[in-house]
Nucleic acid binder design. Sequence first.
DNA 1: GAATAAATGAAAAAGGCTTGCATATAGATT
DNA 2: AATCTATATGCAAGCCTTTTTCATTTATTC
Lengths: 146, 146
Amino acid sequence: MAHSHQHDLIDLRAKLRGKDHRITKPREEILDLLGKEEHPVTAKTIHEKLSESCDLVTVYRSLKMLESMDLVKRFDFGDNTARFELICPDDNGHHHHLICKECRTVVEIDECFDSNLESRIAKKHGFAEVTHQLEFFGLCSSCQTT
Amino acid sequence: MAHSHQHDLIDLRAKLRGKDHRITKPREEILDLLGKEEHPVTAKTIHEKLSESCDLVTVYRSLKMLESMDLVKRFDFGDNTARFELICPDDNGHHHHLICKECRTVVEIDECFDSNLESRIAKKHGFAEVTHQLEFFGLCSSCQTT
DNA sequence: GAATAAATGAAAAAGGCTTGCATATAGATT
DNA sequence: AATCTATATGCAAGCCTTTTTCATTTATTC
Ligand SMILES: [Mn+2]
Ligand SMILES: [Mn+2]
Ligand SMILES: [Zn+2]
Ligand SMILES: [Zn+2]
C-alpha cells in the first residue's frame, strides 16, 4: 500500500512536470483516497473522507485537473452528480457499471461490446476520436423482492 | 401532422385515463412540440418554444409525469442538463446518440450491441429488469479540421 | 352547474458546480 | 536558506438546473 502510493506519486510527479502543475496535499490525498475506492465517488464524498480537510472547491478543481491529465475519469450515473474513479492501467479507464435503480448498489463491469460497432458508427457519420459512455441499470437481487 | 397530433392525443387520453391524470394545455403542447423535434431537448428549450407559455416548473413537472408514463424518455449528454425525447413506437425509446464534443451536434443512432451482452451481465450479477444508457462522443467532420 | 381532486404559478430553496479575488504555498533560482 | 514567481487554495458569491411549498386555478366527475 505504502509502496504503491509511493509509486503513484512518482508517476504523478512525472506527469505533472513540465505542465506547471504542482503536487499539493489535497491532490496527493485525493489520488490516495481514490486509489482505495472500488467504485466511482462524488466530489462531496471525497471531501468528507479527506483527513486533512480542504475546501470543497479545491476538490472540484483538483478533480478537474486530474481528469484533464487522464489520471481520473468522470462517470455519470444519471443523478445529476459526477462521480470520479482513478484510471487504472489495465483497462485504461474504459469500463462500465451496473447500478441498482433502487438501492444504488454499483457493480464494476469489465465486459464491453465489440469495438466494430463504434468504428462503424464513427465512419458512417464522419466522426473521429469516438468514445462511448455506457452504464447498465437494473434491480439487484435484494431489491427484486419487493 | 394535424392527424398524427390527433392520434397522439387519443393515445394520451387512453393512457392517462384511470390514473387520475389530466389532459392540460401545457402537457398537450409539450407532447406536440416534442413530436416535432429530431433530437432530445432540454426543459429550458421546451419552455422557450411553447407558444402558450407556462411556468418552467410546469415543464419540469409535465416531463417528469410523461416520463413516468413512458411517453417521454430522458437522456443525458454529460452536460448536467437532462434532455427529453418522445418515445416512438418503432424503437420503444431505445436508441442512442452520437454527440460532437466540440459543437454539440447530435446524430441519432439506430444501432446497438447484441442484447446477449446485457442478459449475460444481468444474469451474472443477479440483476433483473436491466437496461442501459449508451451515448457516443466524438468529433464531427467540421470540428476535426482544427 | 357544483363538487373535488389534480395541475399550475410564483416564490423560494436545494444542490451541484463554477468564478473572482486576496492570500498562501510549491517549486525554481539564487 | 532566503527569495522569487507562478500556481493553488480558501472564502464568498454566483450560476444553473431542478425541486418544494402553498395558495389558486382548472379538468373531469356527478
Ligand atoms: Mn468503475
Ligand atoms: Mn434520439
Ligand atoms: Zn438494489
Ligand atoms: Zn462538431
